[in-house]
């Protein structure tokens, strides 16, 4: 599959752009957190498209953001189950 570029994204409507980015991010996130991939991808899709494109190119920045999102999600779930 060809890498997703800003030019390719720009040709699609905004909602479709997020779907396109999600399709690329989801498999990568699934490798790290199979059970949380859908939720984590959804959380990350709120980030600017330009930053998401960068994360697709940089495993390191993607991992950092994914871990951040997982930590936030788990803290939230722990808080919910405590109440």
């Amino acid at each position: 599959q060809d890498p997703l570029t800003a030019t390719m994204l720009a040709t699609a409507p905004p909602q479709e752009q997020k779907q396109m980015l999600g399709e690329r991010l989801f498999p990568l996130i699934s490798q790290m957190f199979p059970d949380l991939a859908g939720k984590i991808t959804g959380m990350l899709l709120e980030i600017d498209n330009s930053e998401l494109l960068h994360m697709l190119e940089s495993q390191e920045s993607l991992e950092a953001k994914v871990k951040e999102a997982v930590a936030v999600l788990q803290a939230h779930q722990a808080k919910e189950s405590a109440t």
Binding site: G22, E23, P27, G38, K39, M43, E46, I47, V72, H76
Partner: peptide
């Protein structure tokens, strides 16, 4: 708490197209 993109636990879950019917 301040809204931080990528940390919003209420964000909608992403469904990849291969899982859609």
């Amino acid at each position: 708490p301040a809204f931080v993109p990528g940390q919003n636990v209420y964000a909608a879950e992403f469904v990849p197209s291969f899982q859609k019917s």
